[in-house]
Design a protein around this nucleic acid. Structure first.
Lengths: 344, 344
DNA sequence: GTGAAAGCGCTAACAC
DNA sequence: GTGTTAGCGCTTTCAC
């Protein structure tokens, strides 16, 4: 029994090889492999058999060029390591799963220059759509997005002017709402702990909204502390120690994310500080991690998975309400008071 | 002052448009845009100017088809959410950054079927190489990898037969080493807590090596507990409570990952259990999170970033030692005893 | 230093 | 149901 005739193994297989092996025209082979058009069951079988036997993998590059269709969706996000974007990705992947579309991820590290480069690279593959975090982009990136001629969904944030569609929450209002809750609970000497990230516009807007909320009650931030790099949990501990040493009379600490907030909480528990009686704490994001902590940190859910789902639906053209393009979908984060804000 | 002449905005721009706008042949435009071949500074400027003015983005699909070269590297990993793969990705991205190669990520959720589908999809874009987690693949996936005709690097694990190159640690030996350390520290009634994941071969191999290490000392696992889904930190607490209730005489708990281990540690601290005196604990991975915990969990670093760096170097053809292809690069995890294993 | 011709591997559109 | 023809937008090769 001899092996089936296989073409030069160094060359990758083409439709023509399958065509020759099966005795069916290239065109019909193509139809079978794409499940397009009517093909008799007999030829169908013959083609599939030949393709399998050869181990043929279609060349999507050629296919895309000929059909002017690319089943790729570019997803551009700042980071993969901070727990928030992986969840957005989960929502996107799930939703795209049965649409034939495939996400392709690019990471910017919060750098506008890298964002521009990644976007350029992606657009050069002519994807069916782009999902990109944030509303702030370099001038060139903005221009590319505007003239791309494909659906663009800017995610996470809706405080600004989207190029096309947007799905997200108002970080400004999220900050405002948290400030109001804190003030209502009776806290007055409030400190803020955040990241040194000039290009994290969402964190910036949250802080702006937060200060606005304090201002409504005639308050201002009593102290602030910033960090960059390293283990967020550890940094949270360190920053908390620093700020409390400098301003021992603070009665509330607002953290720009849950990880540093969790670090702060652990620090306070270590030191035996009465939380939330003497000191209240709150973070932002609603990360699942908080569920395992000894005490539950107050936070605000950023609707991460949901944002991914909506964005993907828009790109796939199967969003229940957004159909024309150019919609802004606002989601509303819920405040989860946990155990670190006084009741009443 | 009239606007520059712009072609039909619904059509995406082609080289021809730039050629016409600049009065330079398509061929020369192509050379300028790729920095290939000698082009006079004058024409160069003229072309770049025209391209910028039009907002031309090259079509890589056509380019790739013509040149038979694709600057994409497929990266296939099980998950993005468990802290280990994002770090591998970081290593890959950094290393690829100045090679002109771009990573494209596919997620399998530890499902062999999805892995097969993702791999097929990726290969159909004819990438320059594939980095894929693990040595275990479906038969079809294995066949695709073998006949892909491009560099393949299987990462994370080296206990098995790679298709081409491999970079990783021996999870079997990692488990063994941990068992030996635990036994040496005098623990005798040892429990294991892990995930219900038949397709997480690395966790499986670690456990096998661990049991082997116990067997060397004439010991066997005293109890086991498994979980699936949910917040790993919270699950760690719950499982720890469950197993300690069922087997109160256990003197050591070995967790299959640091997150559930951290949950267990927090539980023990809550309950006032003497760690590591009455009960020792250890996890696996060496996640940065551990640095912020009240006590440092014993763990073993999985060399995640380093694995990404080596794998990318192999694909980019710039690995210091691996040059022929087909190499196996073994990295050696270090045991970090932290504060949860008795000294001596 | 620049241009013209051919073709990469597919699929749209149309015949049969 | 199946086959033929033309071309997608680039780059390779070779001529000038």
């Amino acid at each position: 029994m001899s092996k089936p005739p296989v073409a030069d193994p160094r060359r990758t297989l083409t439709l023509r090889d399958v065509s020759e092996a099966s005795g069916v025209s290239e065109m019909t082979v193509s139809r079978v492999l794409r499940n397009r058009g009517d093909v008799s069951e007999t030829t169908r079988e013959r083609v599939l058999q030949a393709a399998r036997a050869l181990g043929y993998v279609p060349n999507k590059i050629a296919g895309a060029l000929a059909s002017q269709r690319v089943n790729l969706v570019g997803v551009i996000i700042p980071s993969m390591s901070n727990m928030v974007f992986p969840e957005v990705m989960t929502g996107i992947s799930e939703t795209l799963e049965d649409t034939g579309l495939q996400p392709v991820v690019g990471i910017t590290n919060y750098s506008p220059e890298r964002e521009e480069a990644v976007l350029y690279e992606m657009l050069s593959w002519r994807p069916s759509g782009v999902i990109i975090a944030g509303l702030e982009h370099s001038e060139a990136a903005q221009a590319m997005l505007e003239s791309a001629g494909i659906p663009i969904v800017e995610i996470m944030d809706i405080d600004g002017m989207p190029v096309d569609s947007a799905v997200g929450i108002s970080h400004r209002r999220a900050g405002l709402k948290m400030a109001e809750a804190i003030v209502a609970a009776g806290y007055r000497r409030i400190g803020f702990l955040g990241t040194k990230m000039p290009d994290d516009h969402r964190a910036r807007k949250r802080l702006e909204g937060f200060k606005e909320g304090l201002a409504e009650a005639g308050l201002t931030l009593a102290d602030e502390e910033y960090y960059a790099g390293g283990s967020a949990l550890l940094k949270g501990r360190e920053m908390t120690e620093t700020i409390l040493t400098r301003s021992p009379d603070l009665d509330f600490l607002y953290y720009s994310n849950d990880m540093i907030g969790a670090g702060g909480l652990l620090y306070c528990l270590d030191k035996g500080i009465d939380v939330p009686g003497r000191l209240g704490l709150a973070g932002f994001n609603g990360v699942e991690l908080l569920d395992g902590l000894p005490r539950k940190l107050a936070t605000m859910d950023a609707c991460r998975r949901e944002i991914g789902v909506h964005a993907a639906e828009i790109i796939a053209g199967k969003h229940p309400t957004a159909v024309v393009g150019g919609e802004v979908i606002e989601l509303f984060p819920t405040l989860e008071p946990g155990d670190t804000i006084r009741k009443g």
